[in-house]
Write a protein that binds this DNA or RNA. Sequence first.
RNA 1: GCCCCCAUCGUCUAGCGGCCUAGGACACCACCCUUUCAAGGUGGCAGCACGGGUUCGAAUCCCGUUGGGGGUGCCA
Length: 480
Amino acid sequence: MPVRVRLAPSPTGYFHVGTARTALFNWILAKQDPEGVFILRVEDTDPERNREEWVEAIYAAMAWLGLDYTGPFRQSENAPSHAAALEALRAAGSLYYCDCTPAEVDARKGAGAPPGYDGFCRERGLARSARTALRLRTPDEGVIVVPDLVRGEVAFQASAIDDFVVARSSGEALYALANVVDDRDDRITHVVRGEEHLANAPKQMLLWSALNAATGLEVPPPVFAHLPLLVNEQRKKLSKRRDPVALEMYRDQGYLVGAVLNYLALLGWSPRGEDEIVDMATVVEQFRLEDVAHSPAFFDVRKLTAFNGAYVRALSPEGFAELCRPWVDPGEVPWRPSGYRPAWDEDHYDADLFSRLVPLIQERVARLDEVPAMVDFFFLDAPAHDEAAFDQAVRRDPLGRAVLEAAAGAYGALEGFTAEALHATTLELAGSLGLTLRKAQAPIRCAVTGRLVGPPLFESMALLGRERTRARLAAALARA
RNA sequence: GCCCCCAUCGUCUAGCGGCCUAGGACACCACCCUUUCAAGGUGGCAGCACGGGUUCGAAUCCCGUUGGGGGUGCCA
């Protein structure tokens, strides 16, 4: 039987990095089977919380990740099938109407009682009304076994599962039922999702058997695979409220999709051998659900960033330059990071110059959004004024001014304004002042680039040109 | 409360009874290289939660304890 998997996100907020990992694992499974199918199904059955912009965010995220799928489908489109399933279950006696409000249930149980429905309406034989929800009659004893490829068989006490609601009083199916009906209709073979859904699995198993019994169908239920949760430093499930979970944010910060995918694959799984930097083809080749770890994984941005740096360095210079454009090119570009503000005017930007800068900066950034600050002094009339740096390297340094004066003179007399010549000359003037090159380059760097760290100084000055370099040395002298 | 899951360096993990003196990666530290910063190289720090079993032998199997986490909606 060909693998049929799905991603079933709800459009209630940003596309979560955890959703991205779930998507990736599902996609991998489908890719491993020549006939595998990966479905994207947007679970939009809660009109209260859904927003169309979040639906778009799901599509955008999937497109960026490059995970191809069948669809997208909307759960709401399958409402007729949900209704038919509801009717079949009701006719078979698996369901009953309930008009209890949560407050009423709580009141009956008394303050401080454990949560859960008390079965009050189970035998009341209520008829449908505008305020009756439909509940599933669940078994009171026995165990429900959930087949799980990651964890083995997980057994649940039936007594701990109360009669849950499958349809709102409005008549619409709820997630619990809609999800199962859709998985049945889509002939899903593997339900791969986060561990927060593990507790739903026994309920869904119950629904599967009730549904098959009520409809006379014999669709085999899927096998489950509950992936370890992604957690924050406090070991809590990543939350949209306080953790940086929006996939979009990582794209905005200049994380490369390959690095993100690679890192995500390593959360709960690891490739054979010692190399952790692996391409998706390798992952598809080696991945097995049975090998997925059982314990929660901390989403470590520092490691992601280290991976990103490796991916950035592996780019061709041309590829790197192209990928940098959303951050550095004020003109027309394929897309923009949210909150983008041009770092310099369009008429100051020089794509050709930037491409010559690439070798100086590519191995120095781990994220693409670091690039503007690294090259701004080329595209700005005056370099950034980091006063603290200027104080340290020029004003407070007893020889700061002397170095700048010597450089201004020596650079003016240079025959060829090349990196090699600048290097040699600077070495010389440093020596005559009794300084090491390391010490002497600081005030010059600060005067020319505005900063204490940046791309190699002599190469930078050569590209900047004699006039602009000397003008900056003079300007710095005037400020010192 | 109840149900369920989990437990190897700070973090992600390898390990599926002897190959473990517990391996790798990120982070951190030191040194080397060096025009700053990176990158790169070398080395280092650091872990099997605890207690019982089972076994000739346990990080690996079983039980318990402790500790984390998830779920417990007319949300998904």
